[in-house]
Design a protein around this nucleic acid. Structure first.
Lengths: 185, 185
DNA sequence: GTCTATATAGAGATAGAC
DNA sequence: GTCTATCTCTATATAGAC
């Protein structure tokens, strides 16, 4: 499943074959349909759900370590940029490709992706709410944080540069600071 | 190529077969390799480039019709939300799936996507620059606009709801207004 | 320019031995 | 639980007639 997640991230659902997964993971070919009798879709759904959890924990951990909400979110983005740099410009958006490819064809994968994203958004929203942002605004800002990160990864991957992610990072600082000012004013 | 673009948008590169393209478009099967001797990759590259142009023209037209920059950008997003609603929750990010799937495997498709995105970002950056935003800030904001839209489409598609796009729309208003205030202050 | 037929490879999935 | 062999389907691409 680790291999599955990694391949999905850079090749998407249809671009990732079971043969390749078996080959690169070294997992026994015969076990695949023993543990996932429903086949590829079930395997991918499990991998996606696991990745969603990983993303949420990654964000939650950092958000809990830094008290100031703006600084905490900024630190998450900074860490993502670091991760992107060392992953040969391919990391940071493990769900996006699958979400786009399958949202129209597989309810199961679509909802799995939706749940994963919701968990991640909630992690940010919770932090912002605790920091005093009004509930509705916190939710919208959290959604925007996740959306702009996902989009920034797309741009950074196509350009093979961290520049888009850096630019979005700066913009998110401005946005969250501004929202805080409105709240306080 | 119209059919190709449409299928790419909702199925991605590997999920879209030449058979399906030929079948749904009604285009003569024999012509495909006459006009695109290099095969699928060349056809997709052409479709992507065309879509990039379409996106840029779409944005440029609206941006030129409304003088105020914040209102103009907001109108673009509003129109995208309308388009998303009537496209059975599958429209709005015609390049994203291909960009993610192929950025690691095909230099040709990656750079084609990069150029398309750059053209779109430039359209926004030009508008913001003309409105008086400093050059560097305009570039960063334009990148953030495009990134957050792409990300919002991903979220809206997985959730089958316009809500993420609406939330991002509101956030972009806040962001651009704040940046303007900083510039004026 | 467009047709049909086909080559070749790979996909996902299954069967039955062990 | 895991193996190998194989089924069927579809993929991209090509050949050669018209």
């Amino acid at each position: 499943m680790e291999t599955t997640s990694r391949l999905l991230e850079r090749q998407g659902y249809h671009g990732t074959g079971l043969n390749q997964i078996v080959r690169e993971s070294g997992a026994p070919r015969g076990s695949l349909y023993y543990y996932f009798p429903e086949g590829k879709e079930a395997l991918v759904a499990a991998a996606i759900a696991e990745q969603g959890d990983r993303m949420r924990r990654f964000a939650s951990t950092i958000l809990s370590e830094i008290e100031d909400a703006v600084e905490a979110v900024d630190r998450v983005v900074e860490r993502l940029i670091e991760f992107f740099s060392v992953s040969e410009h391919c990391g940071g958006a493990p769900l996006a490709a699958v979400a786009l490819e399958t949202s129209a064809s597989s309810t199961r994968l679509r909802t799995t992706c939706a749940d994963a994203y919701k968990g991640l958004i909630d992690a940010f929203a919770q932090k912002l709410t605790q920091a005093g942002y009004p509930l509705q605004q916190a939710q919208a800002l959290a959604t925007t944080v996740v959306a702009s990160i996902e989009g920034a990864v797309i741009l950074s991957r196509t350009q093979q540069s961290t520049s888009p992610m850096e630019q979005v990072r700066a913009a998110l600082r401005t946005l969250l600071t501004q929202a805080r000012a409105e709240r306080q004013g």
